[in-house]
Amino acid sequence: MKIVIFGGTGFVGLNVAEALLARGHDVTLYDRAELPPSARRALADRGERLTVVQGDITDATAIDALIAEGVDAIVLGAAITAGDDLERASTARVLEINVMAQIPILLSAIRHGVRRVVNLSSAAAYGAAGARVESLDEDTPCDPVSFYAISKFTSERSVARHAELFGGNFLSVRLSAVFGPWERANAVRDTPSLQFQILAAFARAEPAILPGPGIKDWTYAPDAAEAVAMLIEAERPRHRLYNISSGAAWSALQWGEAFAALHPGLQCRLAAPGEKTAIKLHGGDRAPLAVVRMADEFGWRARFGCAESAAHMSAWWMQHKEAI
């Protein structure tokens, strides 16, 4: 298939691109940011099956022209992943990019007969509901609080409503606590995972000192990308919303210790009482996401747990240290 990933040179977009290219598809990355040099080298052997288009997600004319060339599927991955500081600075921008910019893309997809649209949403959409239950399935009533959470929940409803009104084959996925290859902090993402912050400390030849264990249902990016690829290829998905998560909670501290054990001299530990640390926890505790829907319908389960993702990321890190 010919697939366009909006936000394609970003963290999750690049992982999805790698998964789709490995499955034989032609992929176009549309993003305001250039392809990072390390990713350009890693993907150099993909040849004409990979195209990179620099453009703004709000440029409806350019986007419509791109879709009009013939597109089978679209991934809506362009977003501002905002913590409190970025929300305060760019409240309107969060809603503009995460919700309003999608609407011209959806309408263009309908006009030009795009077969499938997958909207990358977030576990943040559950909001305060995550503290009230033991497991979050797709039918759990949401209670989004932050502007980021509100924007992702609204994007899901907007995508579903467009599909209902115009007959598009559109769906959304809620990604939970994603980390892994190609992650980076930038002007539109100020909530890097603890794993990224651990690796950044290691890259500075410093110990990774955590303010807390950081327990979440962490999801390795290649696992999330495989799930998205399955949904793009699926003939007739039975639902408009799917959770994507490892399905099990474990600590970033445990992950950092497993990674450090593979590299003598590295250290990951909790901060001592009163000890300062540059590493920040983002988001409070919440229940893990249930992945029964993905497992039952498509046979998908995350392949990488704590130890497996640490080992895989260690090998990736040795090749791409400059990307951290």
Rank of each mutant, 00 (worst) to 15 (best):
V114Y: 02
V114M: 08
V114D: 01
R115Y: 06
V117P: 07
V117N: 05
V117G: 02
V117I: 13
V118Q: 03
N119Q: 13
S121V: 09
S121E: 07
S122M: 11
A123F: 09
A123W: 01
A123L: 05
A125L: 06
Y126H: 14
Y126W: 12
Y126A: 09
G127Q: 03
G127E: 03
G127N: 11
A128T: 02
A128E: 10
A129R: 04
G130V: 07
A131I: 12
A131Q: 14
R132M: 08
R132Y: 07
R132E: 11
V133D: 00
V133K: 01
E134V: 01
E134Y: 02
E134H: 01
E134D: 08
S135E: 03
L136C: 03
E138W: 07
D139Y: 02
D139C: 07
T140D: 00
T140M: 12
T140R: 01
P141Y: 00
P141E: 05
D143A: 13
P144C: 11
P144W: 08
P144V: 07
V145R: 13
S146P: 10
F147L: 15
F147W: 15
F147R: 11
I150Y: 06
I150S: 10
S151D: 11
K152M: 12
F153C: 14
T154Q: 11
T154E: 11
E156L: 00
E156F: 00
E156C: 06
E156I: 06
R157W: 09
S158V: 15
S158Y: 08
A160F: 00
A160R: 14
A160P: 10
